[in-house]
Amino acid sequence: MTASDFTIKNRHKHRITFRGLNRSKKVNRSKTGTAALTVLLLLFSIFMAIPMLLIISNSFKPQDELFVFPPQLFPTNPTFGNYRDMFIVMSTSNVPFLRYVFNSFLVTGVGTAGHIIISSMCAYPLAKKKFPGKNFLFTLVVFSLMFNADVTAIPNYLVMSKLHLVDTYAALIIPAFGMSLGLYLMKQFMEQIPDSLLEAARIDGANQNVIFWRIVMPNVKPAWLTLLLLSVQSLWPIGNNNFIYKEELKTLPCALNQITGSGTTVNIARAGIGAAVAVFMMIIPILIFVFSQSNIIETMSSSGMKD
C-alpha cells in the first residue's frame, strides 16, 4: 500500500482518469497460457511436496513398512511408535533429554529476543536519522549479505576463544544478535514510517527513547515477526558446531544426531525415528510462518535494494 505511490510513472498520469471505467485489472489472459502456467505450478508443487510428505509419512510408518518394494508414499498401518521410541531413546542418554530441550529453547529464545531488540534499535537511526558514518555502516551491512559464514569459520573460532566464549551459551546467542539480514530488513521497513509522525512527536517534546518505543516499535510489528521467523529459522536447527563441546550445553539437534546419525553414517535401522525427529523439529518454525505469513510478505515488500 505505502510503497505503491511512487511507482506510477509521470507519463501515465493522464491515464489515471480511466480508473473510473472500472476496467478489468488484467489484460488478455489467453486460455492456453493459463493452462500452461497451471500445469507448471502443479508439477512444481508435486516436486516440492513429495519429500515433505515422505518425511511426515515415514514418521508414522511401522518398521516393516519403511523398507518395502515398491515404495509407499503413505503408511498402511500408521503408528505413533516412532514418536514414542524417539522419547525413549533420548531419555537413556547421559544428559537428561529435557536438558537438550531447555538448551535449544534458551538459545533460540534469548537469541531471537535480543536480535529483534538490538537490530531494531540500530535500524531506527539508520532509517530515520542523519549522522556521520551512517551510509558507510549500512553499506557494510549490505556487503555482509553477500558472503556466508563458511568463509569466516576459522577466525570466528579464534575470536570466540579469545573472548573466552567457547563452551558457553553466549557463543551461540551473542552472534545471533548481530545477524545482518534482520537489521537490513528492519531498516528498510522502518523507512516507510512517515517522517511527519516522528516530527510531530519531537515537537511535542518526546525524546529518542519515547519516540522509538512508543511510535517506531508499534509501527513495525510486521518486521518483528519477520525477524522472529528468520532468527528462529537459523537458531532452532543449530546442531554440532565449533563452539560447544560440553554435553550439557548441547542443543536438541545434537542429541537427535546421536540417535539417527548423519551423512554417510545414517543409522538406517532408525530411519523411522529419524523422520519423527525431523517432523518434531519443523513444527515450531512452520507454525510461526503459518501465523505470520502476511506480515512477513508485507515486510518483504520493502526488502528491495536501491541502485
Partner: peptide, 8 residues
C-alpha cells in the same frame, strides 16, 4: 524453514 529436513 524446516532445518535438517533435507536429510530425507
Amino acid at each position: 524453514i524446516s532445518g535438517g529436513a533435507y536429510s530425507i
